[in-house]
Amino acid sequence: MTVRVYLASGFFNDQQLQKVEKTEGILRAKGLLVFSPREHQNESLPLGSREWRAETFRDDRAAILQSDVVVAIYDEQDAGTMWEIGFAYANQKPIVILHINEEPVNIMITESLHAYVDSFRQLDEYSFYRLRKIPYEGDVT
């Protein structure tokens, strides 16, 4: 069985881009089928146009609904990523949060996540076939 993963993350600066690319690599090396919005930008449409926005929104929303699990990189607190987490939760998708700094996490995120991992190593070791629950134990905002 192939596990389908939706990867929620900002990719709007070098730091975000490095994190999302590393995460894509880790997930794919585990044999997971990864949908990363960074790779699905509807390049046939003018960037930022009404058509591009509508198509991108539809594609990302459909990919979340088709996923088995959502992995979200929390570090940048990107507004789009936060929406994707909420939409995934509302549609009963398990959410694995990757948070690789020590800042507190918003309580709405901590209470909606299925598993919390705080390093690329921990993400690499996590079984997406077993989906073990790992609660967040740190401070909240």
Rank of each mutant, 00 (worst) to 15 (best):
R132K: 15
I97N: 02
I64F: 00
G48I: 08
S112F: 07
E111T: 12
D60P: 06
E55L: 07
L65Q: 09
L47A: 15
G10A: 05
V71C: 03
E125I: 12
R28P: 09
V105H: 04
V96G: 05
P37F: 00
M1H: 08
V140P: 05
E102R: 09
Y129K: 07
P135T: 12
Q122L: 14
G10R: 00
T23G: 04
F128A: 02
Y74K: 00
I26A: 11
A54N: 11
T56A: 15
E137S: 14
N106F: 12
V20H: 03
R61E: 14
W52M: 09
S119M: 06
V117K: 02
L123C: 14
Q122W: 09
E39Y: 08
Y6R: 00
P37G: 04
G48H: 02
T81S: 02
I95G: 00
E55A: 10
K22L: 14
Q16H: 06
K133C: 13
R28V: 07
T23R: 00
P94F: 06
S36H: 03
F57Q: 10
L27W: 01
I85M: 11
D59S: 15
E111D: 11
R132N: 15
D139M: 14
Q18E: 14
D139F: 12
P46F: 07
F128V: 03
S127Y: 04
R130V: 13
E102I: 09
E76Y: 10
K22R: 13
T141Q: 14
Y6V: 02
T141G: 15
F120V: 08
R28D: 08
T141M: 15
L7A: 01
I97G: 03
